[in-house]
Every structure is written in C-alpha cells, then in structure tokens.
C-alpha cells in the first residue's frame, strides 16, 4: 500500500487496491482521473498546457505536459493494466485562473476547453468536473473504491 504522487506533467496508474494516487497544488493545470470499477484500474494525469503544437520536441520527451498528448497516454496506460474504455469513469479538477482573466493569463480556461474538446471528439463523457474559479486544488484517487476527493486550498476534502 502506498501513496503515488503525480508531479506536474506526470501520470501515475495502478491496479493495486492498496494504492492512493495524489496530485497536489493544481492551479491552472488540470488533473484528470480515470477509473475502471470492474478491472479496478485507475490513473491520474496532471497536465500543464493545452496543446503540444507549442513544442513538439517537448511533447515527444514529456507527453504528460500537454492535454492532447497526455490524455491519450493516460488511457493507454490504463488499458495496459486491463482497463476498458467503455467502463471508464472520468473526472477532472483544476483549471483555475487569476482574477479578471483578461487576454493574457487565460491558461486555466484554455486547459478546460482543450480537455472538453478532446473528450467530446473521442465520445467520452466527463462524469464529474470541478474546474475554474481561483483556488488551488489537491486530488486523491483511492484504487480500492474508485472514490475521488478534491481539496481546495485551505478547505475540506470533498468527494467529487
């Protein structure tokens, strides 16, 4: 039994019932959680930016950095452990912005749009989403139950 920590631009997957997957301090970044309740396989991605076209070399070296390369990798990593796309539950949190988001600091919004577009194109429903606003979030996924908890900065842990 262990805590698997997902860093920034990182993915962790597990089929070990004792594991808890955690990512800390999401700001504008987004954490995507997927879970197959039958195979008991879960995974989490913490991506930083919406599109890999920004830096293709970086995307090859660290696909977890971008939504469009990280999300497919998250799913593939779970398939390897026996997860099935049809059964997978998808939850997302993060994508916060600073106040009065004008034309410059819209990375949180862009990250949310990128995620929705990718899931829509791939016919995947987002089951639960806690995105936007202006606070940091921490996400926990328990592999034993598939439960996902989100804690906002200074606040309580809440099930998503």
């Amino acid at each position: 039994m262990s805590d698997l920590i997902v860093g920034i631009s990182d993915i962790k997957v597990s089929n070990n019932a004792g594991d808890v997957i955690i990512t800390y301090a999401l700001g504008s970044c987004i954490g995507i959680v997927v879970f197959d309740p039958i195979a008991k396989v879960g995974g989490m991605l913490h991506y930083m930016l919406p599109e890999s076209t920004l830096d293709q070399n970086k995307a090859r070296e660290n696909p977890e950095m971008f939504a469009d390369t990280g999300i497919p990798l998250l799913f593939k990593s779970c398939y390897k452990l026996g997860a099935d796309k049809k059964r997978m539950i998808v939850k997302a949190a993060g994508g916060a912005s600073i106040l009065d988001d004008t034309n410059f600091f819209r990375i949180g919004q862009k990250n949310i749009m990128a995620m929705r577009k990718i899931f829509w194109k791939n016919n995947v429903m987002i089951d639960e989403e806690d995105t936007g606003l202006n606070y940091n979030r921490t996400i926990r996924l328990e592999i034993s139950t598939g439960k996902v908890f989100v804690r906002s900065s200074g606040g309580e842990m809440k099930e998503l």
């Binding site: 700001g27 916060a96 912005s97 009065d100 949180g108």
Partner: peptide
C-alpha cells in the same frame, strides 16, 4: 503570476490576484 498559475507554492491566497491586462 506564472508560478501561481502553475501551482508552485499555492497558499491560502491561491490565484486570488488581479490580472494587469496591459502587460
């Protein structure tokens, strides 16, 4: 602002700072 957005050192103040648009 960039580091706040990236979550490097997010505290109780979170992202609650005003964007200065003309930058």
């Amino acid at each position: 602002q960039a580091c706040i957005m990236l979550g490097f050192g997010g505290g109780v103040d979170g992202l609650s700072y005003r964007a200065v648009g003309q930058v």
